[in-house]
Design a protein around this nucleic acid. Structure first.
Length: 191
DNA sequence: CTCGGGATGCGT
DNA sequence: CGCATCCCGAGG
């Protein structure tokens, strides 16, 4: 399994975001190796991006985003869901890529079609904040990715971000059924 | 210290 | 559309 390098994450955030599509997120917790293919991401462009938490400056919460690339930024949202991000660009930029959806590949039993859901399914929580993505327990593998058609849309849930609200910074693999906004039929048995 | 909102998801 | 539910940043 070919782990993505520090240099990869150190690139421009939009470049990293798009390049992460189709790659494999690997979590080795609890004696289990879970793997999911990244099918949806969002780019958060540092201090000037009003949708980015780093736009509040360097705080206890955002410090990791201002650190070196290739580290995890995990936070709790709405009191119940975790969101998993990967820090990008050289130290001081405050940028990151939010992983929004996965396609289950191995040992995944819960839904993964949203940022909170995939953290739950992968076992990612606040203890993984600031975790190094070059470690052996949590990383992205650079598998051979076939050519993808990438769709760009505005980011989800950032209506408050003024002029950044409509920037096309959400990227997903076209037609992939695990992308978050695809309306899911309720999983229920109609008899 | 209090207060208010949020990079969500699910049910109605 | 409402709500669960809690961390964090702002302000006094």
């Amino acid at each position: 399994m070919n782990k993505l390098s520090r240099d990869f994450y150190n690139q421009d955030t939009i470049t990293v975001a798009k390049a992460l599509l189709g790659k494999h997120l690997v979590c080795r917790f609890d004696g289990l190796e879970r793997i999911g293919k990244i099918v949806e991401v969002e780019a958060y462009l540092g201090a000037h991006d009003l949708a980015c938490h780093a736009s509040k400056g360097i705080t206890k919460r955002t410090a990791v985003m201002y650190g070196p690339a290739g580290f995890a930024y995990v936070y709790l949202i709405y009191g119940m869901y975790h969101c998993f991000n990967i820090v990008t660009e050289p130290e001081g930029s405050g940028s990151a890529v939010l992983i929004r959806a996965l396609e289950p590949l191995q040992n995944i039993t819960a839904p993964t079609h949203g940022p909170g859901l995939l953290c739950n399914a992968m076992g990612i929580n606040l203890s993984h904040n600031q975790h190094d993505l070059l470690s052996d327990t949590l990383f992205v593998a650079d598998n051979l990715t076939p050519e993808l058609t990438i769709t760009e849309t505005p980011r989800i849930g950032v209506h408050y971000a003024k002029e950044w609200r409509d920037s096309l910074l959400r990227f997903y693999i076209e037609n992939n059924p695990y992308v978050s906004t695809i309306k899911k039929k309720r999983i229920s048995n109609k008899t």
